[in-house]
Simulated assay, not measured.
Amino acid sequence: MTEAMAETMQVRAAVFRGTDGDRLSVETLALAPPEHGEVRVAVRAAGVCGSDRHVLDGEWQVPLPAVMGHEAAGVVEAVGAGVRGLAVGNHVVIAWHQACQRCGECAGGKPWACTRARSNDSLLPDGTTRWSDAADGSAAFPYLATGAMAEAIVVPEFAAIKIDERVPFDVASLIGCSVGTGYGAVANNARVVAGESAVVVGAGGVGLSIIAALRLAGANPIVAVDVSEAKLAEAERAGATGALLSGPDLAERVHEATGGGADVAFEAIGRVPTMQQLPELIRPGGRAVFVGLPPEGQKVEIDGLLLAYEGKTIIGSNYGGLVPARDFPRVAGAYLSGALPLDDLISARVGLDEVNEAFDAMRRGERTRSVILFER
């Protein structure tokens, strides 16, 4: 289907209006056809991610009403004028950080550092939205320029990355955020090499993805840290060689497990106390990588002398330093080869009408990752 054949369509979506606490409503909205350089994707799977929960719980502010979701995979079903690299029927993973493709950072191969991206404003690169209320025509906004918890979405061509059709949609959706972020934090940000020791604080979806990527990189030992014994068991299945319950003597136990501190430590929760503790878990010359995203405005206090005197490095990880067009197919290939087992990262598969229950389960710490499946 070309742009000329596409028309505005009615789409069921999970919408956050901010008028009913942290609840989402499943509504029918109007989705305009793709414009120049854009594609419409029939969503087949969308992950339930902690970044969405930050919005629902009032920790991050976005334009409302918001079509939530940003971690998705699906099938291209319409293309706008000027689209050259995608065709109807292609299987794609969605990249939520939609870089401008023109600034110095983008030209330098660092799209994750783009200063002109409109995705944080829940707008497409041209500063508009394709969503509107089906009744009165008022605007609705796709969270992170994606709005993936919907039957269909419109995104720029460069935000829909073609992947091998053998990758199941539920697994493919995770490549767009949690798995991609975890892989990128290991491969792009920390640049872990075989034989390095690692500790991962937080065994949720991103933490488990980091652990899987560490195993792929040949790290050893890989120590998982969490407050939940059930999640630590999941971490060991994902590739952790050891598991520690969090506690006041955590640094001492990590140093014992790694022979003096880890070469690299990852915080995958976004909690200020664990972020502040991370440098204590690494050896002199080690790297501490902040992957989890805290609520807006919270400050992290670090002992500057500890960093300077012991030569420790803090690394910020925005979207795992991903170059989606390069890294998404790499992750998909590693999955298909069996080198990166990802199926076990999904703890529940639900329908769109169960979206609130999925977020409630996340808040209770009961699931590593829920994925919403769409039947078409």
Rank of each mutant, 00 (worst) to 15 (best):
E354C: 07
R367F: 12
R326E: 08
A348H: 13
V88G: 10
C106S: 08
S337M: 08
Q101W: 14
G365W: 02
V93L: 12
G321T: 01
L306T: 04
G50K: 05
V167L: 05
R44H: 07
V15E: 07
L305Y: 09
L345V: 01
S122P: 07
E196V: 05
A159D: 04
H91V: 01
V62G: 07
F328H: 12
P284A: 13
M5K: 14
A4W: 15
Y335T: 11
G321Y: 08
A288P: 09
A78F: 05
A325G: 06
G320E: 09
A6L: 12
A238H: 02
A117F: 04
E3I: 15
R287W: 06
R364P: 00
A334N: 15
W131S: 11
Q61W: 05
L216H: 07
R330H: 15
V201I: 12
L144P: 05
F359M: 03
F16Y: 02
E280L: 14
G109V: 08
V331W: 11
V167A: 04
L352V: 01
G176I: 04
A361N: 06
D344E: 14
P65C: 07
E7R: 13
V186Q: 02
I282Q: 12
A117G: 03
G109S: 04
E196G: 06
P294W: 08
P125A: 01
V355F: 11
P279T: 03
E357C: 01
H70G: 00
E77I: 13
G259Y: 10
A194C: 02
G292K: 05
S370K: 02
D52K: 12
E357G: 12
P34R: 08
D249Y: 04
P279R: 11
I161D: 04
S51N: 01
E256S: 10
G69A: 01
L278D: 06
P65I: 06
G58V: 09
P33D: 05
T146D: 03
P295Q: 06
I315H: 06
A160Y: 00
L340E: 03
A145K: 03
G80Q: 11
A99I: 02
P248A: 12
V289R: 09
C106D: 11
R53F: 14
W60E: 10
C177D: 04
L352Y: 09
M9I: 08
E357T: 13
S246F: 10
D226N: 03
G202H: 04
W131T: 09
E3W: 14
D121R: 14
G82M: 05
E229G: 01
P279I: 14
W112R: 02
A172N: 08
S122G: 01
P248L: 10
G108V: 09
A240F: 00
E165K: 09
L124N: 09
L174F: 00
E229D: 05
A172W: 12
M68G: 07
G109N: 04
V227A: 06
A190N: 03
M1A: 14
G304Q: 07
D353G: 02
